[in-house]
């Protein structure tokens, strides 16, 4: 009898916990969309998303520059982070002797725990001057992408490594027994077998890249200009508006807009995460 009781109890506890988190998410979504709605009706979705000029003083509310900035930074950082992350995962899972791994793996995991302000600061103090040597102010998409790359690497590395490790050793033996070299085995059998896990790692990393705020504000330059995809220009992302910054809250309309940016961002994030829900 008691066995059935604990079984039921466990079921309800799990159910209630799951449901609660869902409700909280729903409430957040409702709140954001309700606060943002006035702006939708006043400016219109098209002008809002595809408008190039953000100047609340003269009633111009286009967030295109910020969206483009966000996307550019995300793409550039992923282009750098994905190959590096997968290579590192291969090193940890297949190549490195256990001694080296026992040092590297905690080091990688430690990167996750560092607050983003610290990344931003390091970027600001070290990277910005370095990149300004090439040209421009140093506050640029390139700077932001490099910082972001470092931030998403641990996610990509640890998830990819786990999925590479989960590949049955019988696959490796089969390939080696056919006379494949170690690298041929990794490339031809292990990576294809682990590709869904590696894909999940990349998507999760991208989620973090799109969602990152603090470090970005610090290294991308605080201006509202169109990024020109070169390191010379200054870029600006929706993040500044979407999450706590001085620009928000000055003006009621602007505040509503901030919420709408948030609504957009929220939508992207939820969409992203839903890829790896079952």
């Amino acid at each position: 009898m008691t066995r059935y009781f604990t079984d039921k109890l466990a079921k309800y506890i799990v159910f209630i916990s799951g449901f609660t988190s869902f409700i909280i998410l729903l409430l957040i979504a409702l709140f954001i969309f309700r606060e943002g709605l006035p702006a939708f009706s006043e400016i219109g979705v098209f002008d809002f998303i595809f408008g190039g000029v953000w100047r609340p003083g003269i009633d111009q509310y286009g967030i295109l520059a910020m969206i483009v900035g966000s996307i550019a930074v995300t793409i550039v950082s992923m282009i750098m982070a994905v190959p590096l992350g997968i290579a590192c995962a291969i090193l940890l899972a297949e190549v490195a002797p256990s001694k080296i791994r026992s040092i590297l793996r905690p080091a990688v995991e430690l990167l996750v725990g560092i607050p983003s302000v610290v990344y931003g600061l390091v970027g600001l103090v070290l990277l910005v001057p370095l990149i300004s040597n090439i040209g421009g102010s140093g506050f640029s998409i390139l700077t932001a992408s490099i910082v972001l790359m470092v931030m998403v690497l641990p996610t990509i590395i640890s998830i990819s490594e786990d999925s590479i490790r989960a590949v049955p050793s019988s696959y490796r033996e089969g390939a080696l027994a056919l006379g494949a070299t170690k690298w041929q085995t990794i490339k031809g059998v292990v990576l294809p077998a682990a590709k869904s896990g590696i894909g999940a790692g990349i998507v999760l990393g991208m989620g973090r890249a799109i969602g990152e705020t603090m470090a970005m504000i610090m290294v991308i330059g605080n201006s509202i200009a169109f990024p020109r995809f070169t390191f010379r220009c200054r870029a600006y992302t929706d993040r500044q508006h979407s999450t706590g910054n001085k620009l928000c809250y000055r003006h009621p309309r602007e505040r509503a807009l901030c919420y709408r940016c948030r609504a957009l961002y929220f939508y992207i994030t939820v969409k992203q995460r839903s890829y790896y829900l079952p």
């Binding site: 019988s170 033996e173 089969g174 390939a175 027994a177 056919l178 006379g179």
Partner: peptide, 19 residues
Amino acid sequence: VDLRKNVGMVFQKPNPFPI
């Protein structure tokens, strides 16, 4: 590598690659 090409192996549990 040449040796294993010359001396192939079939395992206890069938282990086709997931391709």
